[in-house]
Simulated assay, not measured.
Amino acid sequence: MPAESEPHERAWMAWPSASYTLGESASEAEEAWVAWAAVANAISEHEPISVLVDPSGRDQARRRLSSAVEQVDARLDDAWYRDIGPTFVVGADPSNQHRLGAVNWVFNGWGQQEWATWEHDARASGVATEHSGAVRIDSPMVNEGGGIHTDGLGTFLVTETVQLDPDRNPGWTKADVEAELVRTVGARKVIWLPRGLTRDSERFGTRGHVDIIATFTEPGRLLVHDQRDGSHPDVAVTAEVVDLLSRETDADGRPLEVVRLPAPKTLVDDAGWVDYSYVNHFVLNGAVVACSFDDPVDAEARDVIADAYPGRSIVTVDARALFARGGGVHCITQQQPAVPSPTSNPGGTP
């Protein structure tokens, strides 16, 4: 699995149409459509993008998405394509030519959550797999794209509360998970974080996705969510994660450098403690689509992200509507890596 910062062939998203994403009112639906469209249209200015659209959402998608966005018909339950889409990988075929692969995980509604439906989402990864022409790689493991992060050189971050969730993979051990990550995405070292952020561990969360806690910006270097307000329960969570990662090495034995990415000053919303996180950004060709929250820390976080990805423009979108529904910019996007030619540098910056 290449790093997200390596060149992309295109990006993938899904258009929101489910009631628990659109909400119970016209204004809530409008809020969701505006948020998803802002991300898709921003991406379309930097790389090709395809968006899966359920038949019930065609009219709204046509109205709001740029003409540069390809719309692909697909039945959907929800719109978190990071989690219901495939994880793309690159490998060599028997003739030693680079080929695109697509790992199709089992999706079961983030551990069979009682509020979730996944009849269509469980098959949604096949849409991008077939559309891209990738070699399909089926996995028996229940997993989501938001539950893993990689440096592109075989080091992976996961959380114990996701891959070892008994409602996802009952009876699986760390060794079982690691073996499957070796087989499917080329893992050479798996670093286990103990848990996720507090809000994400509650009823409408994923039970601990890594992509709002920490991400690799380059081999050996990470951005890590840093909750600075002692009244927020994530202070303990992030302190534990920073301590663990600061003592770790990557697959090549390189000590990890932890760069703290501050949490917003906003602590609560109508549902309780927020899990607003600037870590949940999407790196694409020549740019980064980052979260903003109309928060005093927005500018500082933008500067940290810009320093982490030199040479890329930073595009911010208001992510409050996304987080109110259970995720952020990274959660609704998925990258399809470019397949390198025999003479190309697969680690180069586009």
Score class of each variant (00 low, 15 high):
272 G>I: 00
195 R>W: 11
176 D>E: 14
189 K>F: 01
218 E>W: 07
208 G>T: 05
254 R>M: 14
269 D>T: 00
190 V>Q: 02
173 T>M: 05
181 L>A: 06
194 P>Y: 03
235 V>R: 15
220 G>P: 08
269 D>L: 00
259 V>H: 13
181 L>M: 14
217 T>Q: 11
227 Q>Y: 03
251 A>E: 06
223 L>H: 04
286 G>C: 13
199 R>G: 08
200 D>S: 02
297 V>K: 05
224 V>Y: 02
234 D>E: 11
241 V>W: 07
187 A>I: 02
229 D>V: 01
166 P>M: 05
276 Y>M: 01
239 A>V: 06
237 V>K: 03
181 L>E: 06
277 S>P: 12
225 H>K: 01
237 V>L: 02
199 R>E: 13
187 A>M: 06
253 G>H: 09
242 V>A: 13
244 L>S: 11
199 R>L: 09
226 D>K: 14
238 T>S: 06
230 G>H: 13
195 R>T: 15
240 E>T: 13
266 T>C: 01
208 G>R: 01
247 R>I: 13
288 V>H: 12
169 N>Q: 05
282 F>P: 01
182 V>G: 07
267 L>N: 02
169 N>P: 09
241 V>K: 10
214 A>L: 02
194 P>E: 12
202 E>L: 14
273 W>A: 00
170 P>S: 07
212 I>W: 00
241 V>A: 12
245 L>K: 11
180 E>P: 11
176 D>M: 10
243 D>E: 15
200 D>Q: 03
193 L>W: 11
223 L>P: 04
276 Y>D: 00
192 W>C: 06
196 G>C: 05
263 A>D: 02
230 G>C: 08
290 A>W: 08
283 V>P: 10
177 V>E: 09
274 V>T: 11
287 A>N: 10
256 L>Y: 07
209 H>R: 03
300 E>V: 12
165 D>L: 09
201 S>L: 12
168 R>I: 04
215 T>V: 12
186 G>K: 02
218 E>S: 15
279 V>K: 01
209 H>D: 01
207 R>F: 13
245 L>D: 13
249 T>Y: 06
281 H>F: 14
244 L>M: 15
234 D>V: 01
177 V>F: 10
198 T>K: 07
212 I>Q: 06
195 R>G: 14
220 G>A: 05
221 R>F: 13
226 D>E: 15
241 V>Y: 06
210 V>H: 03
219 P>Q: 12
291 C>W: 02
260 R>F: 10
295 D>E: 06
297 V>D: 08
171 G>W: 03
271 A>S: 14
164 L>G: 08
170 P>I: 11
250 D>V: 05
282 F>Y: 15
244 L>F: 11
193 L>G: 12
288 V>K: 08
194 P>L: 07
204 F>G: 05
